[in-house]
Design a protein around this nucleic acid. Structure first.
Lengths: 361, 361
DNA sequence: TTGTAGGCGTTATCAA
DNA sequence: TTGATAACGCCTACAA
């Protein structure tokens, strides 16, 4: 069995409280070096380490942050988590992950698990699951429990949601967030294609309801409008951010004579890459493709993917900093409720000028 | 503040113990439906959920498994984790992750965190960190603490390590493991290249000391020997399983006139893909490449990568099953200490017959 | 400087 | 069928 503070007390000949003070280096109390040495020796010999469960139970602090991400196997999230982890560590927090595989039920599960296990704060990137009840349940749980939390990447609170915990509709003021300016990203991607002469630009969007998708679509529409190109909803194929839906979208969009496709993330763009061979087409000669995220593979794939870079590391750092401020009770006035980052367009080989004969279409 | 069992007791008019019994559905005690209803109503109204910290403190069970993985951004581990997570869920366990970024100090950190927070079991895939002291410290901590644990993928215990906890050298019998038959994988990869006529086959290995690398190298040597090709250590470039080292290895190996490269994982193979353009060479015409892991991208990259497939999902499932058996005290005789899976060669477009003029070399 | 005692939120034992 | 009460391992006033 593992040594407890009692064992250390017994072995060293001092009382439990003295041991506790020494072990935790309590400031303000002066304990003779000799006592300290004796106690620490006992600690070493017994291999004593405080039971965090017990400590948290009484201190109500765990020095642990919970991170909920929707899809571990999307490199974008993996890289985002890295930023979070490094920042958390730097501030002395441990990080525990929950991966929901985009199931909204698991969002709820993990929030529960984290709260019940006393994390100090939660970083929440919601799943793409479509059940609105689950979404409401999540934020209600979060709000009601009183844990500090930040939403990341996929923002919550821009849709009309009634919160029981609040007893009113949720506003964007209730929920802090760190994310990219997705509208701008969508705009830049589309604008780039328009500049290359494309006019029939298809989209493989993400699930409707996710800000990452809705906002990018908004940016797409803005760019079209600016260029005087009418918006055609038939050119939007709703994907799910996984490669398969990129592949599915391809024949649909080709059937609508698009000359370029804006995939709302790189994974789906890869799905298009994989599928495009079956149509005997080549990127970018026959079809331009723009992705989103700029994950590692986008650079090495052939042709290298034109895409929008997200400053993942910085974003990860920011959520943690903001969250920890929140935890430490920094006055809300000094906190930025919504932090937005700028996407940058990485032009690579997957986009090219539209071909002359296609321009006529 | 969050509602406690006391609040429920007060509100419902019953005692704490009765509430506890009802909430936990204690078998064996018969409590009138009317009592149950009243209590459950109070539970609902107060939104009561037991504090898991307190529960774990007394039950010594947390229903949580800790998973330590070395590199979140390597899709292979992401997919492996998925299998683990699904299996854990199926058995009613929650899973918390720790990502070490291949820093051996963090292995230690996470093991501590997990133990101190009372996980029921740990699945440990060690980092590639090279400090042997850390490695020893890890297993000593694990062994000494008495938590159930399994090593996964990267096996521990095949090297000579002295354990203080055990008071003797560690043998492979002390540590359970689930992994691929890496020797066989190395053999199959090399054999495939030999069958294509290659005789100067370079390797980009993983860090020496990791079984995944050492074993694959062994397989490589076996295949060479079988074919009567002398083993040339100069053809082995020690990588770190990250893409960059694939890129670094390329000029080194090309300088040694290899006609094929066996990269010990797909990530490094991608590094080679990225770099190969700078040498005006093409895969597979000028250079055959074999990877290892068969992650998603290997199929869509051009040319598609010949690689060794690991049954990640099954492996994830197995570790969990085995670990939970361990936790439940299944007699050790009924447990398989070391479970090995078979790799399968996926032949794709990155390997081809060696060119005639090169065969002479 | 050190020890005693109370409490954190539960479960479990044993009476009533 | 229910309710005290003693743990669990630790921290923290408050006393000594």
């Amino acid at each position: 069995m593992r040594a407890t503070i009692k064992d250390v007390a017994k072995k060293s000949g001092f009382s439990i409280s003295t041991v506790s003070m020494v072990v935790n280096n309590k400031p303000g109390v002066s304990i003779p070096q000799r006592t300290r040495d004796k106690i620490m020796e006992a600690v070493r010999e017994l291999g004593y380490r405080p039971n965090r469960l017990a400590v948290s139970l009484v201190t109500k602090k765990s020095n642990t942050l919970g991170l909920i991400i929707p899809d571990n196997s999307n490199v974008f999230f993996a890289e985002l988590s890295k930023g979070v982890e490094v920042a958390a560590r730097k501030l002395g927090y441990n990080l525990i992950y929950g991966n929901t595989n985009n199931k909204s039920k698991r969002d709820l599960d993990y929030i529960r698990v984290f709260i019940d296990r006393g994390v100090d704060g939660i970083i929440f990137t919601r799943s793409a699951g479509t059940d609105p009840d689950d979404e409401r349940a999540c934020i209600d749980l979060l709000l009601q429990s009183g844990v500090c939390f930040m939403t990341m990447d996929r923002v919550i609170g821009n849709r009309a949601i009634y919160s029981e915990a609040l007893g009113r509709m949720i506003s964007s003021e209730d929920i802090f967030s760190v994310a990219l300016d997705h509208v701008k990203g969508g705009y830049l991607a589309t604008r780039h294609l328009i500049d290359l002469g494309h006019r029939r630009i298809g989209c493989v969007s993400g699930p409707a309801g996710l800000t990452t998708s809705d906002d990018r679509l908004l940016g797409y529409q803005q760019a079209l409008e600016e260029a005087g190109i009418p918006y055609d909803p038939a050119l939007i194929f709703e994907g799910d951010y996984e490669p398969g839906s990129g592949a599915t979208a391809l024949p649909y969009l080709l059937g609508r004579n698009v000359t370029a496709i804006f995939a709302f993330n790189d994974m789906m763009a890869f799905g298009i890459y994989r599928e495009v061979h079956n149509f005997n087409l080549s990127i970018p000669d026959d079809l331009s493709v723009v992705g989103f995220d700029d994950i590692f593979f986008s650079e090495i794939i052939q042709p290298p993917l034109t895409t929008l870079r997200q400053p993942v590391f910085e974003m990860g750092t920011q959520v943690v900093n903001e969250l920890v401020d929140l935890i430490n009770g920094v006055p809300q006035g000094e906190l930025q409720r919504h932090i937005r980052f700028e996407p940058t367009l990485q032009v690579r080989g997957s986009t090219a000028k539209v071909r002359k004969e296609e321009e006529r279409i």
